[in-house]
């Protein structure tokens, strides 16, 4: 019975559905990155379904650059998530000194990981856009 009531509680909390993904106000930046990661993931799935259905399909020139923004964000943020999951490059656990202490992603070494991910995203998106807009038009 204990587990059953816990399950009901969990179900009730999840009743927000898709709108709950965007309940990001008053949270850390990771909460925004989570929403963006999920949206870009869904967009990439839609793209690969079209890419498979009509083999090799891609949206073309400027849309290709936009696809690059979507994919490179998912890649850069995904690298951050894997590093955090494996405990790499996030420093040692912080000692909790006071009840009102801010999240580890704001006070600890882990906050640099967000900067790293966003810089990596911009660099990769720029390289992708260069290929989509310049190299592709040279190849004809």
């Amino acid at each position: 019975m204990e587990a059953e009531s816990g399950y009901r509680e969990y179900y009730a909390r999840n009743m927000r559905g898709i709108s709950g993904w965007f309940k990001v106000r008053a949270y850390t930046i990771e909460r925004w990155l989570y929403a963006a990661h999920r949206i870009t993931g869904i967009l990439i799935v839609l793209f690969i379904l079209a890419h498979f259905y009509s083999t090799g399909w891609h949206p073309g020139l400027w849309w290709d650059a936009l696809l690059g923004v979507v994919v490179t964000f998912h890649v850069a943020n995904g690298i951050r998530l894997i590093l955090a999951e494996l405990g790499l490059a996030i420093g040692k656990p912080l000692l909790i000194k006071k009840p009102s202490q801010r999240p580890v992603s704001i006070e600890g070494v882990q906050r640099y990981l967000v900067v790293f991910a966003l810089v990596l995203f911009i660099v990769l998106a720029a390289i992708w856009a260069y290929y989509a807009l310049v190299v592709q038009s040279m190849m004809g």
Binding site: Y7, N14, R38, I42
Partner: peptide, 10 residues
Amino acid sequence: VRVILIEMVP
């Protein structure tokens, strides 16, 4: 997709 679906229908 599975993770999103089972989160929608727990």
